[in-house]
Structures are given as structure tokens and as C-alpha cells.
């Protein structure tokens, strides 16, 4: 379960998040919607622990862990996963080698032995089938020269391999055509689990047609100003955000 209380975050001395509170219980999928500049991406980076995002007040907990006390890699090992809006290309680093390092770092932190090569490949093949990705793509240089759709699929593959407690999907639909969006959404839906909290950050209703959220939150000017069920997304699509600004 993710619990954020009264979170204040500055970037370059400018307040972006101004008292954000949010709870996502295990097993639920919550969507965060909001206009450009409302702080959606800042929230995802702060959860992952990116440099330059300064928390001036508040707390973030995942189960028993105080995230703000942990480094970027420690957070990931503890079960935080951010699917990037723009996955980073890392030429020269093989995707499989990368996945194996990531998985074994997590296992090491949990006191488990490293996976041997055979078990790793077996797990990888299983997850590739789950997210509908080719073995050829999985063996290439990490995100290097991948299409937009392939990059997003690769994010979902990593999520499947690392089995996080909290998955944050930052605009996972951006830059995808309808078919690619369907494929990525199918992967995400297959990864819904009673043990996992998911946070979908998006501009658009169309993603929420493909991945039905349990709750929808509206982020405006650094705060959650409104929340509701899946129907709220439809209402936002129709009415925009201005009516919430006035409130």
C-alpha cells in the first residue's frame, strides 16, 4: 500500500507539489489526471527518488518503508517501479544483462540467492509471452533504436520481471498508436494483482478505457482537489478541469 501525506516538493526552488495526500491500497489501480504543469510527472519522479526533486515536507510510505530515507536503487529493490514516460536509451548495455542485474539486485536485497542463467531465461521467456514481446527485441541494446511502442512494452516487461509492490505508469499511453496502446494495456492488465498498487498518470480518458481504474484523482496546482470512481474520468473528458479550479 502506498501512503503519501501532505507532500511538498520543490524543483529549482519552485514549489510544484503543495500538500499532496494520496493512498493507494494493495490490489487497486488509481488514476491521476490533471492538466499540464499540475505536478503529475513530479509526483512520479519523487516516488522514484530522482535528483533535483526536493521534498520540503510530508512523507511517503510503502508498507513499512519510509521511501524518503531510501536511495533510488533501494526504493526499486523494496518494490517501487516507475514506467518512464520517455524510457532512456542505453546503447551498449544489453537488455537481458540489464534485466538480470536488476532482478538479482532485488533478490540480494531480499536475502535471496541470485538466479542462475537457466532459471533467468525461463522466467524471461514466461514474462515475454505475458507482455507479448519478441525474444529478439529482449536481446537488443537497452531501448536503443526501439520504436515508441517497443520502448513502452519493454517498460512493462521490466515491471513483469521485477514484480513490484507499487507500479507508477507515467503517461504510458503517450506516443502510442491504438494497436500499441492495446498491447501495452493488455500487459498492464495481466499484471494487476492483489499484492500490487498501481498508479496511472495520464492526460487522457482513452487509457482508462483500456485499463479500468478503481479510483480517479484530480491533480491541480500541486494538490489532489477531487476524487471519484471511474466515471470521473468521463466527466473530466467532457467538462475539462476549470470547474474544479473554481471549487
Amino acid at each position: 500500500m502506498l501512503t503519501i501525506e501532505n507532500l511538498h516538493v520543490e524543483v529549482d526552488g519552485k514549489a510544484i507539489l503543495k500538500g499532496l495526500s494520496l493512498t493507494v491500497p494493495a490490489g487497486e489501480v488509481h488514476a491521476i489526471m490533471g492538466p499540464n504543469g499540475s505536478g503529475k510527472s513530479t509526483l512520479s519522479y519523487v516516488l522514484a527518488g530522482k535528483e533535483g526533486y526536493v521534498v520540503t515536507a510530508g512523507s511517503i510510505r510503502i508498507g513499512d518503508f519510509d521511501l524518503l530515507e531510501m536511495s533510488v536503487d533501494e526504493r526499486a529493490q523494496a518494490g517501487v517501479f516507475l514506467a518512464f514516460q520517455y524510457p532512456v536509451e542505453v546503447p551498449g548495455v544489453n537488455n537481458k544483462v540489464f534485466l538480470r542485474h536488476a532482478l538479482n539486485a532485488k533478490r540480494k536485497a531480499a536475502g535471496q540467492p541470485e538466479l542462475d542463467a537457466v532459471s533467468f531465461i525461463k522466467l524471461l521467456n514466461e514474462k515475454l509471452a505475458l507482455v507479448g514481446m519478441s525474444k529478439e527485441l529482449a536481446g537488443r541494446e537497452l531501448n536503443s533504436g526501439y520504436s515508441g511502442g517497443e520502448k513502452k512494452k519493454n517498460e512493462i516487461l521490466q515491471m513483469a520481471m521485477l514484480d513490484p509492490k507499487l507500479a507508477i505508469l507515467d503517461e504510458i499511453d503517450s506516443g502510442l498508436d491504438i494497436d500499441a496502446l492495446k498491447a501495452v494495456a493488455a500487459g498492464v492488465n495481466a499484471l494487476r494483482s492483489p499484492q500490487r498498487s498501481m498508479l496511472l498518470i495520464t492526460h487522457y480518458q482513452r487509457l482508462l478505457d483500456a485499463i479500468a481504474p478503481d479510483h480517479v484523482h484530480v491533480l491541480l496546482d500541486g494538490r489532489i482537489v477531487h476524487a471519484g470512481g471511474p466515471e470521473l474520468a468521463l466527466e473530466l473528458e467532457e467538462r475539462g478541469y476549470d470547474w474544479l479550479r473554481a471549487a
Partner: peptide
């Protein structure tokens, strides 16, 4: 570096990979 670390890879290992 951030991308690799955000997958749990410790900083020293991430640097070596790069």
C-alpha cells in the same frame, strides 16, 4: 544512471555497466 538505478541496480554497478 537514474534509469538503471530506478530498476534496483546499485550505483557502482550501474556506473560499471555504462
Amino acid at each position: 544512471l537514474f534509469y538503471l538505478r530506478s530498476r534496483g541496480i546499485p550505483e557502482s554497478v550501474a556506473r560499471d555497466l555504462l
